[in-house]
Simulated assay, not measured.
Amino acid sequence: MMSPRSQLFGRDALLNDLEREIKKGHHVLLTGPIGVGKSALLVAVLQRIEPRESEWYQFDPVASDAEDEPIEPAPLPETPGRHDQVMIYLSEHQGKAQFVQIARRLLETGILKPSTLELAKKYDDLPPSAIEWKKIRRNVNRLSMRDLTQAIIPAIYEWEGRILIGVDDLTSLTPTQQAFWLAILEHAQVIGCASSRKSGLSKLWWKMKHVAVPPLDCRAATDLVRDYIARHGVLIESPGLYIGHVVKQANGNPQAIMDMLESSAREKRLDKRQIREMRHAAGLTYVDFTPVMFIAGAAIIGTRYLAIGLGDTALYVMAGMGAALFLSLRVFMFKGSRGKTGG
C-alpha cells in the first residue's frame, strides 16, 4: 500500500496551486489516469485546509460506510458552531452511497435533523453523538437520491458556516445524477476526482475548475525510487539499471512505480536478468487504428468502383486482393500497442 509520503512525491507546486484555488472558493475537479495520485492530493489539500485532526478520521478506511462494523469505533467529530467550517469526505464511488455519506456526516455534526430522513422523531431530541449509525443505517439507505437530496439541500442552505465536500471519485456519475450534484454545488464547495470527464455531464463540469494531475517527471520518479530503495534496504545488483527500468516502465505513474517497487522488494536480491524482465501495463500505450481502418476501407471500395468504371480487370483484381487482406487484418488493427520510450 502506498504511503502518503510516496503518493505526494514531486507534487508540492501542484498542491500549493490546488490549495489556492480552493481558498478562492472555486469548485475543483482533479483529472488524470488511474494511479496518478488524485486521491492523495485531495486528502492532502483537505488536511491543509482543515487543521483540526478530529476531522481527519474521515480519511481512515476503518471509518467507512462498510456493512461490517469496524474493529474499533472511529472517534466522533466535534460538533461545530453555527459559523464553523464543516468538511465532508466521500470515499464511496457510487452516487447513491455518496449521498448517504453526506447525510451521515450532516447528522454527526447536527446540521441535519434526523426526522428529515424519515427517522423517528425521538432522534431529533438526541445530541448527534448519541445517535448510533448502525441503528439507522438501513433506514437511511432505503431512501432514494431524490429523498436524500430533499433533506440535504435545505440543511446545508440554512447552515451559516462553510461546507466543503471532497469526493474521491466522480467518474461513475451518471447524467441522471447530475441534477442532484448541481443542487449540491449551489450551496457547498465541492472538490472531486475523476479519471475522465464523462459525456452528458457538461453542465456539472462547466461549474468546476479543472486541474489536470500529470504523471511524475523523470526526476521526481527517480527520487521516489531512490527513496524507496534506501528506506526498505532493497538489494540490487545494478541500482542504475533498476532505477532507469522502473521509471521507464511506470511512465510517471506513482501507483505503477510503487507496484513495481513492492513486487521487487519481495526478492532477496535482484540481478540484471530479473530487472530486465520487470514489466508494468503503465509502460504501454494503445494506438487506435480505427481512423486508418475507415480510410483504408473507403480507398479499397473506391478503387473497385473505379476499376469497374474503367473496365480495368487488373486493377479490379488488385482491389479484391486488398479487400481480402484488409478483412483478414482488421481484428489486429483496431487496437495495437507499443511500448513508450519516454521516461
Rank of each mutant, 00 (worst) to 15 (best):
S264H: 03
V190S: 04
A74Y: 00
K24P: 01
I236D: 11
Y305H: 11
S328C: 12
S264N: 12
T341Q: 11
L173R: 01
A256W: 06
A74P: 12
L329T: 12
E158W: 00
L42R: 02
D68W: 10
P51G: 13
R162K: 14
K268I: 05
L325Y: 10
S202L: 06
L327R: 03
R20K: 04
P175Y: 01
L270E: 08
D65W: 01
Q274A: 13
T341C: 04
P175A: 00
R82P: 11
P73F: 03
K203F: 05
R330T: 13
V292K: 06
G233S: 08
Y57I: 13
A103S: 15
A103P: 08
C193S: 14
D259T: 06
I156C: 04
A220N: 13
K135P: 02
Q255I: 02
T149I: 07
N141D: 15
I131C: 12
I191D: 08
V287D: 01
M208T: 07
K248R: 09
E69W: 03
K268C: 03
S202R: 07
G200Y: 02
G309C: 01
L284I: 09
I102Y: 02
K135R: 12
G336L: 14
M321F: 05
I301S: 08
L148G: 11
N139R: 08
A212L: 07
K209Y: 12
M145E: 12
I136K: 04
Q255C: 07
G95P: 09
T290D: 13
T222A: 11
A97H: 03
L327I: 11
L306F: 04
K23S: 13
I257G: 10
S144R: 04
E78M: 06
A323R: 05
P239G: 11
Y305G: 04
I163F: 00
V43S: 13
P33F: 01
V167P: 04
I34E: 15
M258Q: 14
K134R: 11
G342W: 02
E237Y: 00
A151V: 07
D147A: 15
P33D: 14
A250T: 13
I191T: 10
I22R: 07
H187G: 02
I153A: 04
I22S: 10
K207Y: 03
Y286K: 13
K209Q: 14
R162Y: 08
Q101K: 02
E72D: 14
D259I: 03
L204N: 00
V247M: 10
G95R: 07
R162G: 06
I34T: 14
I165A: 01
P215M: 01
D227E: 12
L112N: 07
E237H: 06
A63Q: 05
G95L: 09
I301K: 00
I156H: 05
L201H: 03
A103N: 09
R105V: 08
M321V: 10
R273H: 09
P33G: 10
P73L: 09
R276V: 10
A40P: 07
G32W: 06
I88M: 12
